[in-house]
Design a protein around this nucleic acid. Structure first.
Length: 514
RNA sequence: CGCGGGGUGGAGCAGCCUGGUAGCUCGCAAGGCUCAUAACCUUGAGGUCGGCGGUUCAAAUCCGCCCCCCGCAACCA
């Protein structure tokens, strides 16, 4: 692992239902960071995948009269299809039902077992069959002589189950030390506070096996048990790099990961269990875990009963993938929960994409077509105004890079969109149309200057809206390979006198028909 | 006193760590331009920054108390 390489992951998704907006959101964030690092010259490995074991899936499979793996093939495919729908640039798609993952998990299990971090004991508690969940004593109450769970009201029974445990408790201090020494291991800071306070209260050992179902990876020492969720699921992040073969090229180049993108709901597992497992297995820890907020609809979690579901696939069908990507990144503050609505989506598409960036491209390229022989003009003499205008972006590249390295996608977009405003203003103020007859040389200089700006804005927007920016490069007859951060300060990629390709409206406006 | 987040013009948010004329996008009003997707540019109206109190020359920003909303509270992706 060196700073030329960049490894980023999405959560490993549990495909018990169809993919929803939360999955799309996590994946889009990760994709944008992956794409940015790619155009910034890094070698990027971007992983996503599905976590396919467990009781829920076993039951569903039985209900559908399928064997679990057949059933998983179908479920997993929906998530794999989503990577295409979302236009993800992932290098791999891992499934926890794959052989490579089995080997990886068994290896890490054995390591933990052999070095005394896993032991056999009994797991006990108040179990609700209908909730499929254990409850603590204080989460239950007795009504009319029946013991019930407070939260659901369902009947609970005292159940004891043999289980293997991971000695999580003994890692508390080490974890706190790690958080302390690596202040950006958990981001955003508010999430870190939550985790630190939680760990400070002391950790209980973690049950890492089950005997109540069979759909999983068998415990090597005892085939009555299957390895339970987290030790199985989280390990995917190294399985995909061909762990346990630590001399493998992928593993050597990309572990430890630069960042795991996850939702705040699974923060604890990624910020506590995962580093503890890794420390216990003497594997290096990832650099960062970023727990983003939730996407809400009408201030609430989306649910069928509330009827406020915004389905990513439907939205993409109707509005387009770049539109959804841009909207989610622009309108939702990454670390916090964010409300989304169709109304805001259409506003965002119409204003930022259609009227601003889209129309900028349209007005300039049309101008080139009509007044510059449809080819990129030769610049002559730049005025101070031209110079200052172009330089603004060049001067901000370092700042933009550091925003992306902090996962501050909101401010990144804000800054870039501002360049688009400035470009429209420049075009207005310099009035190239007024030179059509009087000073063609000045006119061509203005057009060249703004083409440079469109090129640069498009490079910067490429990670967010890859389809549209690729179109712009095509329309300008630029080599798509040149869509790189380093070319922001390189105008040689704009070949003079080169004819533009056919152009189309980039973003159509949407009627607000809600 | 369990942990954490939030309460800022009509809407959605930033600013709070590192106090000093309250910022952005949308919406609204007026003007300009005409190259462009009735797009673009400029200007303006609109806020006692949840409440009370404290520190300070100065507080949205620091401290204390209170009110309201939302997550988490361990095996649930």
């Amino acid at each position: 692992m060196n700073n030329k390489n960049f490894y980023i992951t999405t959560p490993i998704y549990y495909p018990s239902g169809k993919p929803h907006m939360g999955h799309a959101y996590s994946s889009i964030i990760a994709d944008i960071l992956a794409r940015f690092n790619k155009i910034d010259g890094k070698s990027v490995f971007f992983l996503t995948g599905t976590d396919e074991h467990g009781l829920k899936i076993q039951r569903e499979a039985e209900k559908n009269n399928k064997n679990p793996i057949e059933f998983c093939n179908e479920l997993s495919k929906k998530f794999k299809d989503l990577t295409l729908t979302l236009n993800l640039s992932n290098n791999d798609f891992i499934r926890t039902t794959e052989k490579r993952h089995y080997e990886s998990v068994k290896n890490i299990w054995n390591k933990l077992y052999d070095n005394g971090n896993i032991y056999l004991d009994k797991y006990s508690g108040w179990y609700s069959v209908s909730d499929e969940a254990y409850y603590d004593e204080d989460e239950t109450e007795t009504i009319d002589g029946n013991k019930i769970a407070k939260s659901s009201g369902s009947k609970v029974d005292w159940v004891e189950e043999e289980s293997y445990f991971f000695r999580l408790s003994k890692w508390s201090e080490k974890l706190l030390e790690h958080y302390d020494k690596n202040p950006e291991f958990i981001l955003p800071p508010s999430r870190k506070k939550e985790v630190v306070n939680f760990v400070k209260k002391g950790l209980k050992d973690l049950s890492v096996s089950r005997t109540s179902f069979t759909w999983g990876i068998k415990v090597p020492q005892n085939n009555k048990h299957v390895i339970y969720v987290w030790l199985d699921a989280l390990t995917n992040y190294i399985s995909a790099l061909n762990y346990p073969n630590i001399n493998d090229k992928l593993y050597k180049e990309f572990w430890p990961a630069n960042i795991h993108i996850i939702g705040k709901d699974i923060l604890r597992f990624h910020a506590i269990y995962w580093p503890a497992f890794l420390m216990a297995a003497e594997i290096k820890l990832p650099d960062r875990v970023y727990g983003h907020g939730w996407i809400l609809s009408d201030e609430k979690k989306m649910s069928k009963s509330l009827g406020n579901i915004l389905d990513p696939i439907e939205i993409i069908d109707k509005y387009g993938i770049d539109q959804l990507r841009y909207y989610l990144m622009k309108d939702v503050s990454l670390g916090n929960d964010g409300n989304i609505s169709l109304e805001n989506l259409t506003n965002c598409i119409n204003n930022d994409l259609a009227n601003n960036y889209g129309n900028l491209c349209q007005r300039v390229l049309t101008f080139v077509e009509k007044n510059c022989d449809n080819s990129i003009p030769i610049p002559s003499k730049r005025t101070v105004e031209d110079e200052v205008f172009n330089k603004r972006i060049i001067d901000e590249v370092d700042k933009l890079r550091s925003l992306m390295n902090k996962q501050d996608i909101n401010n990144y977009i804000k800054t870039v969109v501002n360049f688009s405003f400035e470009a429209n203003k420049y075009f207005n103020d310099t009035e190239p149309w007024s030179f059509k007859k009087t000073d063609k040389i000045r006119m061509e200089q203005i057009i060249f200057t703004i083409l440079v700006q469109i090129k640069n804005i498009s490079i910067l927007l490429n990670p967010i809206i890859p389809v549209a920016t690729k179109k712009v490069f095509k329309m300008m007859n630029l080599n798509p390979e040149d869509c790189k951060i380093q070319n922001i300060n390189n105008n040689d990629i704009l070949k003079h006198k080169k004819k533009l390709n056919e152009k189309n409206i980039l973003f159509k406006k949407v009627e607000n028909d809600n």
